[in-house]
């Protein structure tokens, strides 16, 4: 039978308001496949653009960091045929015997106190243990084989810059893939794009400051800290701002979407 088409309002009667609270199991987000693919295409293009301009990006990263850490010069290396990668070049130093011993003692003390006392929440304690354990290993290494340390500041610098450019180029693709999922309204597209720009910008600033700081430490406070720069404060740390921005962005769109029935559909 054909509807008499009296143009009812969307479901707003008392029973629906009640159902919404209890219908998480069948809740689905409306989406627009065209908008999703459009976004993905855009993010893919940006990603592709960044990949094809690796030299320029590495140069931009280097001059920005150089602006903060002036005791370095910009150098370049051919990484793929005809493609040059720019990085900051400086001279570092090995730790002295005394400072290595001092750091080792501090590490042992921190690890001991961490083991003995329980006033720090356990996840932070484990994280601290991890940081100081790596520092302790580093100290032991430098006490025993410091003379054979295989890296220069330039080796580290190249590795760091490559990693960071890798993250820049992947943000549009992987982070874009995460936010493009939300395509239920035009304003979400704007929110998505702003979030995407923000994450790229934050990533760049963060990378540049960290680059400068790491080189500053390696130059002035020795290679003793290099292991931690790789294992604790390297790419793993980028996860913080990516998940922070993602969480904040989600909370904003969730606040709006939650109040609007038209963005949702149910299985029944």
């Amino acid at each position: 039978m054909k509807s008499m088409g009296l143009g009812l309002e969307p479901l707003k009667s008392f029973e629906v308001n009640k159902v919404i609270d209890y219908a998480r199991f069948g809740r689905l987000l409306k989406n627009d496949k065209a908008l999703f693919f459009m976004q993905m295409f855009l993010y893919f293009c940006v990603s592709f653009y960044l990949v094809s301009h690796i030299s320029s990006i590495s140069y931009l990263l280097s001059i920005t960091s150089n602006f903060i850490f002036t005791e370095a010069s910009i150098n370049k290396k051919e990484i793929v045929d005809g493609v040059y990668f720019y990085f900051l070049s400086s001279s570092g130093r090995l730790p002295t015997y005394l400072e290595t011993l001092f750091v080792l003692l501090v590490c042992i003390l921190v690890l001991f106190f961490n083991y003995k006392f329980d006033f720090i929440p356990r996840p932070f304690k484990i994280w601290l243990n991890f940081v100081f354990l790596i520092l302790m290993l580093s100290s032991v290494y430098f006490l025993l084989f410091g003379y054979a340390f295989p890296y220069t500041i330039d080796d580290f610098s190249i590795l760091y810059a490559i990693a960071q450019v890798g993250i820049f180029t992947l943000i549009p693709f992987l982070f874009g893939f995460s936010i493009a999922l939300f395509s239920f309204s035009w304003w979400v597209l704007i929110a998505n794009f702003l979030t995407f720009i923000l994450s790229l910008a934050y990533s760049f600033v963060f990378a540049a400051v960290r680059y400068a700081l790491f080189l500053y430490i390696l130059k002035n406070y020795s290679f003793l800290w290099m292991a931690n720069m790789f294992f604790n404060f390297g790419p793993l740390l980028d996860m913080i701002y990516i998940s922070g921005i993602y969480g904040f962005y989600l909370s904003i769109i969730s606040k709006v979407a939650k109040k609007n029935l038209r963005y949702w559909k149910w299985l029944y």
Partner: peptide
């Protein structure tokens, strides 16, 4: 420099805190 770095780490945590 260290201060700016720590600030950049801290900022993403601010909404959580």
């Amino acid at each position: 420099m260290i201060f700016i770095f720590l600030l950049l780490i801290l900022i993403p945590f601010i909404p959580a805190l």
